[in-house]
Design a protein around this nucleic acid. Structure first.
Lengths: 343, 343
DNA sequence: GTGAAAGCGCTAACAC
DNA sequence: GTGTTAGCGCTTTCAC
């Protein structure tokens, strides 16, 4: 408001110009201006020209809020991710918003920090803006959240996990399968002792549990592990290896990390201590971030194609906007264990 | 629309419930419902209770689009950053949106990819949603963008750079000073030959130019450099060192990298080739990302407090919403060269 | 090809 | 403390 009035002498603000004023200048009615913008072919070339001139002269910017209210179409997508600073989510978001942008949609973003209550609050706030669809991370949500989402009657896509009972549709992979795959790989590669480093993330915990169950079932032994309640960082990875060594980690133990960040820390701490990887300690990361292949030694990791994940999620929504029947509810994008020199 | 009608038997959708319907159920008028939500103290306790019951029963979610149209207040902030996958911007965004969220604002996000045309398009689209303020990265914008922003009459905060002539206000630091600081540090540390690795980012180029000018002025010699037109990655950093070595890089050369990503690649490539850092090649990064201090050897870098930057930007906006006069236009958050073992 | 009228669901102003 | 009225700036529908 301060800005609206701080320079009263200047020309009328662009944001204050309406279709009605543009119409007045162009000698047509307000509806014709609306048509010129949404379906120019329905307006005569001469009229169109006059309207475009008037728009340029006034610096008119259409008011999408009024448009959304009148048409019940906001062209806005709500996206809730645990964290934007985690490349794993931000790169998915990047791919997702790229496609949505091409289709004329914009993104309203919130971070939920792996917290279901925060997620519920964010969902309520976002739904009040009447987005055309909503993207959520994970398939676990509070009861209140589920109810609101169902009530909203808009497409909902849940990502990074799969479920037989998605709210609407989900795009992701099985974290249990990923844990099993890591255990099988480790056992087959000859490792018989394993430990874990896990972040405070429900999906990471599920991978860890699946890994441990399978590794033990195959006959391997478990040397314990370290659980953090926070996000994974390189520093915590270094610290985790130190702690494990203090506890007397046996040479040749394999570390299953819930994130490449942890694994990178382990690699660097090992290097600093003169430990050989994978002879003294072997490492499996998760996420296959860019640096994984480029570390020395290169990091064995579980690769999720985050770009594809974001794209499939976007396409699922676009499909839902267009079609009306028989839409695929579960999209499993899978994962791939990439063996490298750290194991 | 498909979703709206796919289950006609079920109860009325929450998103379709209006204040008028809630009022009818509670035996009051629509305005009273509005008051119960925005200023509950102005409604009698009994009425309030009946309204709250009706809201719970219907699953009413207020329509913020209608509210925004009626009040000319959207509680939405547009944020345009070059890239969300770059931690440098995402961590700033995280700090920024945290504070804005606390103040009741939500974020509409777009990526501009260091492209002024894309930025202009994104600005137009965002302004049509009538955000209460807009955050931009950098102080260079297209002429059209500047015009629209001025016309919009809302607070504008430009970040990551400073300028004597911001559109409204800016929060950042001097990239020229940062380049000079790196050159002075390198020269004082005894380095006499320098090369650069630079990403396709106007601000990085300005740092490089300032670095080279100052280093040459002090009497150092320049061994050329490598310029990319894309974003910095670890892989390109490895590749850049290879290229420079192929060209016959002299031992003891200092590499000024426009990003820690490049510097990390240089470190890893040097390690893979058995080169000693800093004896054979010394490295200065930029950004002081988490891994910088934790690499072996630890990376000398230029630190920007991205969290503070985001917070100062948020506070500048909050101030602008409240106050109306004498607001600080330029906020220099500075930078700090952090010497470590890579130099 | 163009316009007039109605209304989207709220908030703001003013009455009572 | 509560209600009535009048918009906000568009899109939709129906006339012509």
């Amino acid at each position: 408001m301060a800005n609206r009035t701080r320079d009263p002498a200047q020309i009328r603000r662009g944001s204050g110009v309406t279709m009605a004023e543009v119409g007045r200048l162009a000698g047509v009615s307000q509806v014709t201006v609306s048509r010129a913008l949404s379906s120019p072919s329905k307006v005569s070339p001469e009229t169109l020209q006059r309207i475009q001139d008037a728009i340029a002269r006034t610096g008119f910017v259409p008011n999408a809020v009024a448009g959304a209210l009148a048409s019940s179409k906001s062209n806005l997508i709500a996206a809730l991710v645990p964290s934007v600073t985690n490349i794993v989510y931000s790169s998915m978001l990047h791919a997702f918003s790229d496609i949505m942008w091409e289709h004329g949609y914009q993104i309203m973003l919130s971070e939920t920090g792996f917290d279901l209550d925060r997620e519920e609050k964010a969902i309520a706030t976002h739904l009040s803006r009447r987005p055309d669809a909503i993207l959520l991370t994970g398939v676990r949500h509070s009861a209140g959240a589920r109810r609101m989402l169902l009530n909203a009657g808009i497409p909902v896509v849940e990502i990074w996990d799969i479920s037989d009972t998605p709210i609407d549709c989900c795009v992701g992979f099985s974290h249990v399968d990923a844990g099993h795959a890591a255990a099988d790989f480790a056992f087959n590669a000859g490792y018989r002792i394993a430990a874990t480093i896990t972040a405070g993330d429900e999906r990471a915990v599920r991978r860890r549990d699946a890994f441990l169950a399978r590794f033990a079932k195959r006959g391997g032994s478990i040397a314990g592990g370290i659980d953090y309640t926070t996000s994974a960082t390189l520093g915590l990875g270094r610290q985790a290896l130190s702690s494990l060594l203090d506890r007397g980690l046996q040479p040749g133990t394999l570390l299953f990390c819930s994130s490449d960040q942890f694994a990178q820390g382990v690699l660097i701490e090992a290097q600093a201590r003169g430990l050989k990887v994978p002879q003294d300690v072997a490492v499996i990361g998760f996420g296959d971030q860019e640096f994984a292949a480029l570390m020395e030694p290169a990091l064995t990791s579980i690769r999720i194609d985050r770009q594809v994940l974001g794209q499939v999620a976007a396409r699922a929504l676009v499909e839902r906007f267009a079609a009306s029947t028989d839409l695929q509810a579960v999209h499993d994008v899978g994962f791939e264990l990439v063996p490298r020199s750290s194991t």
